[in-house]
Amino acid sequence: MTTQTAVLHDIRAGYGTGDRQLVALDGVSVAFDRGTFTAVMGPSGSGKSTLLHCAAGLERPLAGSVSIDGVRLDDLTEDQLTRLRRDRVGFVFQAFNLVSALTAEQNVALPARLAGRRPPAADVAAALAAVGLAGRRRHRPSELSGGEQQRVAVARALLSRPAVVFADEPTGALDSVTSRQILDLLRGLVDEQGQTVVMVTHDPVAAARADRIVFLADGRIADDVRSPLAPEQIAARTARLVAGPC
């Protein structure tokens, strides 16, 4: 088993063509180790979301290669890529993306059911228990707080026991207390279950919970910090990236 769950090598991604092409990632190489929590930060337009989408197989880069759990995504057909994302990748977004008419357990099971599979009830229950919602499995989104809804989204991401969970601003729609609870949850998944988490965030407090912070600027890696930083230090580094070279 590889020690790296996701590897991006010399990734170039962009939008448009010719003179109108906008470069989002310009030769980015980065690997995410198994059982670690990485935060990806940078100014608006730095390429954070594009990096996440390429790493997760949601978007194919213009050049370079991406591997998840040892499988090269550029070697896969669209059907094969869809199956790999379904089985080996978990997603958590700022919007909870829950179906209002379904209960928590039905929302957790929904992606598998849409793929034509019936997940074991015990697996659904275990995913909800892992995020502290064992007693709320039959509640609908309107009966849950924002933090509880995001916990359902995390449980949904965990159901397939993914190699890596990609989180795009998972606390962006939450208040500070609820954000801390979600970050505690993600931190616990890494520390207690060996889950790999890659999180895009603009929040220095959220990034401070990670093992590593990858800073992007203008589509390139500007810094890669593997030692703990305080939120104030993270904010200062991000501000310098926004300001650019003096």
Rank of each mutant, 00 (worst) to 15 (best):
R187W: 08
E169G: 13
I213L: 12
V177T: 15
G132P: 03
A155S: 00
T17N: 10
R118E: 05
V225F: 07
T201M: 08
G244W: 12
D191K: 13
A125P: 01
R156Y: 00
D33L: 03
A217S: 15
R118G: 01
S100K: 08
D33I: 02
S179D: 13
E59D: 15
V30F: 04
D79I: 05
G132L: 06
D75S: 13
K48S: 12
R72T: 08
G14E: 08
R180E: 15
R161I: 01
A24R: 08
P141V: 07
D75L: 07
F91C: 02
R86P: 00
Q21L: 10
L58C: 08
E143G: 11
V164S: 01
V200F: 11
I234F: 11
L241G: 14
A63W: 09
S65W: 03
S49C: 07
H139Q: 11
L81A: 07
V242F: 10
P170S: 11
L189G: 09
Q181K: 13
T50G: 12
H9Q: 14
V214G: 11
V242I: 12
V89S: 02
V198Y: 03
M41H: 11
A243W: 08
L22H: 09
P228S: 14
R220A: 12
R20I: 02
A122L: 04
N97E: 13
N107M: 00
Y15L: 12
D184F: 05
S49Q: 13
E169H: 09
L185Q: 07
G14D: 07
H9D: 14
R34E: 11
A163T: 02
D87V: 01
V154R: 00
A222G: 12
D33R: 14
D26W: 06
V7T: 11
N97Y: 10
R12Q: 10
A207F: 08
R86L: 08
K48D: 10
L174H: 09
A230S: 12
L102A: 05
D33S: 10
C246W: 11
C246A: 14
D74L: 06
R180M: 14
F93I: 06
L114Y: 05
V28P: 09
A95D: 14
D223S: 14
P204V: 14
V23S: 09
R156H: 01
A56G: 15
V190G: 05
H202Y: 10
S49P: 05
E143M: 12
L58F: 08
A104I: 01
F91P: 01
T50W: 08
D33T: 09
F37M: 05
E192S: 14
T82F: 01
D211I: 12
V198D: 13
R220F: 09
I213P: 01
